[in-house]
């Protein structure tokens, strides 16, 4: 039976119970503050595309399709390097209350920035690679999920990359730093830090910070993110290797 988590009235009530600066506060799903949700990754989910990937991080579910490289439209000027076109969409049923996704209009450009540093654009001159991301369920840390899943889809499509891009975000609530926040934790966060990272090359392709932070806090949060990204990178790598060996 579908569990009802979508009544406007109910959400309201939950928001009022905000976790305060209480050291005994426990995360609603029982995780430790520095514990990420388990990841489920699968490539080749959409057959019509050149490459695709499906990712679940707890209740956040994302599917990404990659098309191309294909001829760029004639209107584009001739370019010695390829073009990467990113588009992030939220399904209308992805959020608990409909119409909430208007906060995320900039996800498409943020995805582009995160992937740009990793893709060898010179390997497909004059052509375009389209990356279409669809968030099926928005359960928190949506953008990191989209970035990681998109990087898998690009690898699945055979687009040359310097490295995979793994992404994680940290929320600051009161005095605590929690990693991979779920939706209700994001709703009451004081600040957030999102990092997109290439684990093998050890390079950050994108970093965004909101809220008021001390420098020490920033260091701590960044370390947390990089550590999570490295672990996620390993999981992504395993997933790709499995896909390769199963199709031999």
């Amino acid at each position: 039976m579908a569990s009802p988590a979508s009544y406007a009235l109910r959400r309201h009530q939950q928001q009022r119970r905000r976790p305060l600066q209480d050291d005994n506060w426990v995360r609603s799903d029982g995780r430790g503050f520095h514990q990420c949700r388990p990841a489920f990754l699968r490539t080749g989910a959409a057959r019509a595309a050149s490459g695709s990937a499906y990712a679940e991080f707890g209740s956040t579910k994302v599917i990404v399709s990659v098309f191309g490289p294909r001829e760029s439209k004639k209107a584009m000027k001739y370019s010695g390097i390829g073009r990467l076109n990113c588009n992030v969409n939220f399904a209308t049923f992805s959020t608990a209350t409909r119409g909430q996704e208007s906060d995320h209009k900039d996800f498409s450009s943020m995805l582009h920035k995160a992937l740009e540093g990793a893709v060898l654009l010179e390997s497909f001159p004059k052509t375009t690679v389209d990356v279409f991301a669809l968030v099926l369920e928005s359960g928190g840390s949506d953008l990191p999920a989209v970035i990681s899943c998109a990087s898998l889809a690009l690898a699945d499509a055979g687009i040359m990359m310097y490295d995979l891009v793994a992404s994680a975000s940290v929320s600051c609530i009161g005095n605590s730093l929690i990693i991979d926040p779920a939706a209700e934790e994001e709703d009451c966060q004081d600040g957030s830090l999102t990092v997109a990272f290439m684990p093998s090359r050890r390079e950050i392709t994108q970093l965004t910070l909101t809220g008021e932070w001390s420098t020490g806090r920033i260091h701590e949060a960044t370390e947390l993110c990089l550590d999570a990204c490295s672990k996620l990178g390993e999981i992504m790598r395993t997933c790709l290797k499995q896909a390769v060996s199963s199709s031999t």
Binding site: A155, M161, Y162, D163, L164, M198, P199, S200, R201, M236, R237, L240, K241, V244, S245, S246, T248
Partner: peptide
């Protein structure tokens, strides 16, 4: 079929390996 065909699992690489 997978068991029958020669597998080259040793030589598979992922990006940045």
């Amino acid at each position: 079929l997978q068991d029958v065909s020669p597998s080259s699992a040793a030589a598979t690489v992922a990006v940045a390996d």
